[in-house]
Design a protein around this nucleic acid. Sequence first.
DNA 1: CATGAATGAGGTTTCATTCAT
DNA 2: TATGAATGAAACCTCATTCAT
Lengths: 215, 215, 215, 215
Amino acid sequence: MHTEQPIRTYSKDQGLVASRREHIAKCAAHLLVKQGYDRTSVREIAGACGMGMGSLYHYVGSKEDVLYLVIDHGLSRYVEFCEEAFPKLGTNSPTEALRQAIGEYYRMVDGSQDLMLFAYQETKNLRLDAREAILDLDRRIVAAFERLLARGCTTGDFSIDNLTLVAHDIVTRGQLWAVRRWFLRKYGSLEQYIKDETELILRAIRPPKVMASKG
Amino acid sequence: MHTEQPIRTYSKDQGLVASRREHIAKCAAHLLVKQGYDRTSVREIAGACGMGMGSLYHYVGSKEDVLYLVIDHGLSRYVEFCEEAFPKLGTNSPTEALRQAIGEYYRMVDGSQDLMLFAYQETKNLRLDAREAILDLDRRIVAAFERLLARGCTTGDFSIDNLTLVAHDIVTRGQLWAVRRWFLRKYGSLEQYIKDETELILRAIRPPKVMASKG
Amino acid sequence: MHTEQPIRTYSKDQGLVASRREHIAKCAAHLLVKQGYDRTSVREIAGACGMGMGSLYHYVGSKEDVLYLVIDHGLSRYVEFCEEAFPKLGTNSPTEALRQAIGEYYRMVDGSQDLMLFAYQETKNLRLDAREAILDLDRRIVAAFERLLARGCTTGDFSIDNLTLVAHDIVTRGQLWAVRRWFLRKYGSLEQYIKDETELILRAIRPPKVMASKG
Amino acid sequence: MHTEQPIRTYSKDQGLVASRREHIAKCAAHLLVKQGYDRTSVREIAGACGMGMGSLYHYVGSKEDVLYLVIDHGLSRYVEFCEEAFPKLGTNSPTEALRQAIGEYYRMVDGSQDLMLFAYQETKNLRLDAREAILDLDRRIVAAFERLLARGCTTGDFSIDNLTLVAHDIVTRGQLWAVRRWFLRKYGSLEQYIKDETELILRAIRPPKVMASKG
DNA sequence: CATGAATGAGGTTTCATTCAT
DNA sequence: TATGAATGAAACCTCATTCAT
C-alpha cells in the first residue's frame, strides 16, 4: 500500500528493510509529531525506535527519509480506509452513503489529529519526489470521495457541476478539523461539526426543487 | 493595526523601532517565504534587510521575533482589508455583497499565496503569546465575514444555522487556494475557483424555496 | 588619594573628567559587584551611571578602565582609613592600638564584603599597569599595620621576627572574612571572629615570658 | 575521590566517560589556568584536549562543566593527600606532625600555584551545586588539619580555643602563598615562608609556660 | 547486522567600541 | 558635550552523518 520510494539502504534483505521501516515509522511518529521535525534529533529518533543511530541509518538514507516514512505510513491508513470502506457503502442511498463516508473520515481524522496536522506542516520539508508521493496519497483520498459523488449524480440525488472541487472541499474540511483545532474546538464537538458540515455540503449539492415541481 | 507584542529591543526610540520593524518585516518576508524559517539563517535575514546582524538584534529580540513580524505584517493586511472594505459593501444586496467579498478576499490571497502558505506552516514555530496574537488576526477575518452573513440572515436572503462555521468555511477555502495550490492549480484558474466556490457556498446558505411557496 | 592612572579620554577638562570618573566608580560598583565583570555589559554600566554609552567613553578608554575605577575607588577608602586613623591610635598602648586597628579594619571589610570579594576575583582582569596600581593600594594597607607593629617592637610589647609577614597575615585574615564568607559565616559572628583572630595574633607576637624572668 | 556531579553526556559508557573527563581535566587545566576561564574558548579547550568540539561535548554538557572538572580534579589531589598522609604522621609528636603537615601542604600548593590561584578566582563561575561541591573539598582539607590539632590538644601540646578557626588559618595561609604571590614573592622563599608561618602558628597555639611551672 | 564515538560546519546571539548627529 | 545606532567578530553549542569495531 505504501508508495514505493527508493531510499538508500545498507541492507539488502528487502523483507527486513520493509519490516524495520514500518517499525521506524510507527515508533518515530509519536516523537516527531510531538516535537516537530526540526526540533527532533536523529539520536532521539533512534532512541525512540529502540535502536542505535548506526542501525537506523541501515534502513534509512537520511533523517528526511524518516519524515517521509512517518507521513507516508500515517496517510496510507486514510487511503486504505477510503478506498476499501467507501465502495461497501454502495447498498445505501447516495446521500446516506456520503453522510456515512464523511462521518467516518472526519472521525478518523479526529483520531489522529496530531499526525494530520504534522503532515500538513512538515510535508514541505520533503524532497520533491517524496513530497509528490505524499501528495498522491491525498489525491487518492479525494478521488475516493469523488467516486461517491459521481454515483449520486448518476442517480440524480446530487447535482454537481464540478465533482473534483466538491470532493476536495469535503476532504479538506475534514483535515481542517485537525489543522484549525484552535478555532474549531471553541465552535463545538466533533459530532456537531460533522453534522453541520455534512448539512452544508448536502445543501450545496442537492438538486434544485424546481425540477420536482416541473414534473 | 499590528497586534502589539512586547519584543526586546536595545533601542528606546519607539518611532525608529516601529519603522525598522516594518522594514524588517517587508525585507525578510520574501527570503523567509522562499526558503522556510528553519532553513534561513539570521545572517541571511540581516543581509536581506541591508543591515548587519548586530543591527537586526537592536530591533528584535530573537530570530523568532522576525518570524512573528513577517506573519503579523502579512496577515494584518488581510485584516485591515476585510474590516475596512466589507462594511462598504452594504449598498449591495447581501448576496451580491458576499459575492464581492469572497472574490476580493480570494484574489487577495492569490496575490500573496506564498505568504499565506508560509503563515500556515510556520506559525507553529511561534511562542504561545505570539502565536495567539497571529491566530487572533485570523479570527478577525472570520468575524468580518460573519458580519456579512449576519446581515443576509436579517434580510432573509440567507438561512444559516451557524454563522461562525460558514464564515470559517469561506475564509479557509480562500486560504486553501494558497495552501493546496499543488492540487487546485490543476483544477482551474482562480476566477473559476472563485465562481465555483461562491456558488457552492450560496447554495448551501440559500433559504429553502419551499418556504416561499408556502406563503 | 586615588592612584593616578593614565586613561585615555576625549575630554580635556581634567576637573570634569575627575568628577565624572568618581561618579562612574560609585554608580558602576554595585552593578559590577552584583553581576561580575564579564557578565556586565557596557550598556548596563552606562545605564547605571545615568549616561549614554558614548558619554561613558568620553571619560573612560575601555570597559576595563571602569573596572579599575571601581576597584581603585573601593580600596582607596581602606587605604585612607588605615593611613589616617592608625597614627591617631598612638595614645594607646601598642597592644590596645593593634586591637583597635584590627577591629576597625575587619569591621570595615565586613561593611563592604562584596566589593572586597569582587576586588579579589576581578583584579586579574586588569592590564599590568592598572593591576600594579591596585596591588600598591594593598601594599599600603599592609604597610600601615606594619608601622603599628614596629612601634610595639620598639616598646618591647611585641616580639616579631618579620614585621611584613605578620602585617600581611593580619590584613589578609581581614580580607578572608569577605572572601571565605561561605566558610566563616558558619564559624561565628564577625565580633567573635575579630576577638579570636586578634587573640591568636597577639599570642603569636607576644614576647616570651621566660626572657623577662631570666634577666 | 572526585565528587560525583551529574553532568550531561551523550555517551552512556560510564568507564569511557570517566576516563575522557580525566583527560579533559588534565589537558584543559594548563590552558584555562594560563588564559583564564572567560578568555578561553571552547574551541581552544577542545584543541588542547586533542579532540573536536563535538567530541568534547560528548563528555561534558557545557563549558562550565569543564571548569568544574578542572578545579575538582586539581583540588581533589590536595584532599587525597591531606586525608591520606596526615594520619600517618601520628608517630611523631603533635608539634612535629603539624610542622610536617604544614610544610608538605604548603609545598604542594607551591607545586601548583597557578591552579590554586585559578580555583580561587574562577570557582565563582560555577553553578551553585558545582560550587558547593568544590567548597566541600576545601572543607575537607580544613578538617584534616583540624584532626591534627585535636590530637595535640588531647596530649596537652596545644592550647586552642577554636580548632576550626586555627585550622582554617593554616589552610588559607597556604593558599595565600599562591594567591598573593605578587606580594609574598618579594618577601622571601617558600621555605622561609613555611618556617616563619609555622613558627607564628605554633606560638599562637602553644600552651602558656606558666601552667607547667604551676604544677 | 549493530553500535555509538567522532567530527566540524553552522546555528543564534552578545558585546565593546566607533562616529555621525 | 552627549548620544545611541551600527557593526561584525567571536562566543557557545547542536547535529546529521560516517565508519571502525
